[in-house]
Nucleic acid binder design. Structure first.
Lengths: 216, 216
DNA sequence: TAGGCGAGTGAATCACCATTCACTCCATGC
DNA sequence: GCATGGAGTGAATGGTGATTCACTCGCCTA
């Protein structure tokens, strides 16, 4: 007769799955996706390599889950910031600035999850994430355009470009290193301004659109 | 007594090295860096795998050489286009548009050489390439700023962002596919306009700065 | 033309990791 | 208590792909 799952066991299983996910996440945050190796994840989660496979069918599934986890968290933060803004234009600004600030705050993880090419299967999740960010920006652009707050432009094409500009400008290999919090804040503001100008907002700074920079 | 290298031999050796480089380049252009495998390169160059190692100490060296080759060619094209422009602002526009157009014309190769993470050693060459492009753009921005043709901005930070916007907007995974030559031309123009607006050029189109789009 | 250098070869080796599986052991259910 | 389901283990396996090396053979020198 099959055993029933004790309350205790259920909790332990869930905790262990979470531990594996956390281990993978922290490894990705430290050394990029290449550091996410089953042996390393297992070690960090204090279990044997084989045990990982009791929770995730394959490494790809694990990596996918890591990406989805990060994606959900980040998208929620971005939407929250944008929704809290007083108008369409400042929502757009908040959207970009939040994405920029949080990305910069966790450079390595963001890079691993957004930019590093990986196995095809997990790659789909990464694409979803990028797509979500771009879609959100695109939606905010359209909202602003509807109210005549932006000049005519191709939102569908502009959104990915904005994502690229933020990533490359802030966490790409050529991006100037932000030494301290002030420098980081400054970099986020500059990048947001650049993005808004690209979309046709000439005087964002004067209008106070980039004043409120989210933490990270 | 060591043999001297006959004229014929020298030519054959050079030809073979070139063949290997070309094989690697075409493979990268078709399937990205992961397609650049010693066995595949050797096969395409009609030689044995071991022979590759008579010409390149390691795969990394081969990949580095591929990147340098592409980099030199592209940088020359970009500089040529910019230098041929009538003024600083149109030089800047030409610089960006040329980079964009040529990148789009060879999406896969450009992606392989500019964006795909690879082994650390070869990665240095890739960085050099990105750095060169960004530096060129940065220089053109400064030149335009000197003549008061652009508003105040941090050229050092803006240049990488422009590179990112072009890459992501044109050949990134989210970029709209350019179906035909007209669509490609259109996409390059849009992206260039976006970049110029980001830098504070409000009426680039009206001023005809993006009219002349290089081929590819 | 004989002798021998060194380019060319490609099967074997090495390294790196994901994945498997025969086994252990603890908690469950009677 | 005792039999047993199933989580946990980690050494062994397998696949992929770079790199090596003992050997062959064509071309150069004398």
């Amino acid at each position: 007769m099959p055993y029933r799952r004790t309350e205790n066991v259920v909790r332990r299983l869930a905790a262990r799955e979470q531990a594996i996910l956390n281990a993978a996440l922290s490894l990705a945050g430290e050394g990029g996706m290449e550091a996410v190796q089953i042996a390393a994840v297992a070690k960090r989660a204090n279990i044997a390599a084989g045990t990982v496979y009791r929770y995730f069918p394959s490494k790809n599934d694990l990596v996918s889950d890591v990406i989805v986890t990060v994606s959900d968290r980040e998208m929620a933060a971005i939407r929250r910031a944008a929704d809290a803004a007083p108008g369409p234009l400042s929502a757009l600004a908040a959207c970009i600035a939040t994405f920029a600030a949080r990305t910069l705050a966790e450079r390595r993880l963001a890079w691993a999850v957004l930019a590093e090419p990986i196995e095809a299967e997990a790659d789909a999740m990464r694409l979803d994430f990028r797509q979500s960010v771009a879609a959100e920006i695109e939606a905010r652009i359209r909202a602003a355009r509807t109210r005549q707050l932006l000049p005519e432009l191709d939102a569908r094409a502009a959104a990915p470009a904005i994502v690229g500009a933020v990533l490359e400008g802030l966490i790409g290999p050529l991006a100037p290193e932000a030494v301290d919090a002030a420098a980081a804040r400054q970099a986020v503001q500059e990048t947001t301004l650049l993005a808004l100008r690209a979309l046709g907002v000439i005087d964002a700074r004067a209008r106070g659109l980039v004043a409120q920079v989210p933490l990270g």
